[in-house]
Amino acid sequence: MKKQWQLILTAIMFYTRLPVHVNMPHSEEALNKATRYLPLIGWLTAAIMTAVLLGFGEIAPRMVCILLALIAGIWVTGAFHEDGFADMCDGFGGGWTKERILEIMKDSRIGTFGMLGLLLLMTLKFTSLLSLPLDHVALAVFIAQPLSRFVAVTVIYTHSYARENEDSKAKPVSKGITLQDLLLAGIFGITPLIIAMIYLQNYTLLLIIPALVLARWYMVRMMSKWIGGYTGDCLGAVQQVSETVIYLCFCILTWKYT
């Protein structure tokens, strides 16, 4: 149990900017094993975003509350996943060979594709949530943060790391994960969706799953075709696209209940 707690703290240390003390060596093996708790990090992010939503709900307009919650989510992760999405947009938008795509994604500067992609993605997140009352926004966040991270974990399980020199942000997870890790991540990732369906008595929310499968299929197909696997940026992009798909689906599937 103590070792698992240390792995959770390692996951918090690696995937967020929250200060934690991990009483174990900072090894690649520990970081790789901590990937099983990536969806649990989504619970933490969702809790912080929900606290902002509810905290400002009585003193600020709904639009401001939602924007502040999105900012809080970006702050707690240090824009870790958003950066990956922007880099993937630049790489796949401007590169025509594996080498060139990987070179562009490694560049810390953001290009036109990355800027426009990130702007449109954040706009879609904001407008999808803006159509919901605050309690439904909290539920959407509660579902999206863990489940979108689980989708990224499934890519680690099913596909290979694309870079030959493991010098990027995905290095700790480049060796893949076990089936046991995947199942544990799945519990943390899918449970919020089940809870939300029972709470709302709206089982059409299950349609979020095929929507995510379709989005994942498209992104994985593109990654496999052009670079032969995933990178850290690709995982961040998968998380961001999945999160946005969940918000959009939640908006569509619950509008008549609001």
Score class of each variant (00 low, 15 high):
28 E>H: 06
50 T>E: 03
21 H>D: 00
77 T>E: 05
160 S>T: 10
108 S>C: 08
68 L>I: 06
197 M>N: 01
131 S>R: 15
35 T>L: 09
170 A>M: 02
34 A>Q: 07
42 G>N: 03
17 R>V: 15
153 V>I: 14
143 I>A: 11
219 M>Y: 07
198 I>H: 14
109 R>F: 12
9 L>I: 04
89 C>E: 03
140 A>C: 11
176 G>N: 07
243 E>S: 12
2 K>S: 08
96 W>S: 10
123 T>V: 13
41 I>P: 01
113 F>T: 01
250 F>P: 04
40 L>S: 05
183 L>I: 15
244 T>W: 09
49 M>K: 05
138 A>S: 14
149 R>N: 13
245 V>W: 06
242 S>D: 03
49 M>L: 08
226 W>M: 09
135 D>T: 13
133 P>T: 06
157 Y>V: 13
138 A>T: 08
225 K>H: 12
255 W>E: 02
173 V>A: 07
247 Y>K: 03
162 A>L: 01
72 A>R: 05
103 E>W: 13
254 T>W: 04
255 W>D: 07
8 I>H: 10
216 R>D: 05
30 A>E: 03
218 Y>T: 01
201 Q>C: 02
78 G>M: 13
105 M>W: 04
147 L>W: 05
137 V>D: 01
69 A>S: 11
160 S>V: 11
204 T>A: 11
187 I>F: 15
47 A>H: 10
150 F>P: 03
46 A>D: 05
166 E>M: 07
20 V>K: 08
181 D>H: 12
62 R>C: 00
127 T>I: 09
96 W>F: 12
254 T>N: 14
196 A>I: 03
121 L>W: 04
227 I>R: 00
88 M>Y: 02
190 I>V: 12
141 V>A: 07
162 A>S: 14
218 Y>I: 08
165 N>T: 12
20 V>P: 10
100 R>F: 15
24 M>A: 15
104 I>Y: 06
6 Q>V: 03
65 C>F: 12
134 L>N: 06
210 P>K: 09
54 L>M: 09
159 H>R: 14
254 T>V: 05
176 G>F: 12
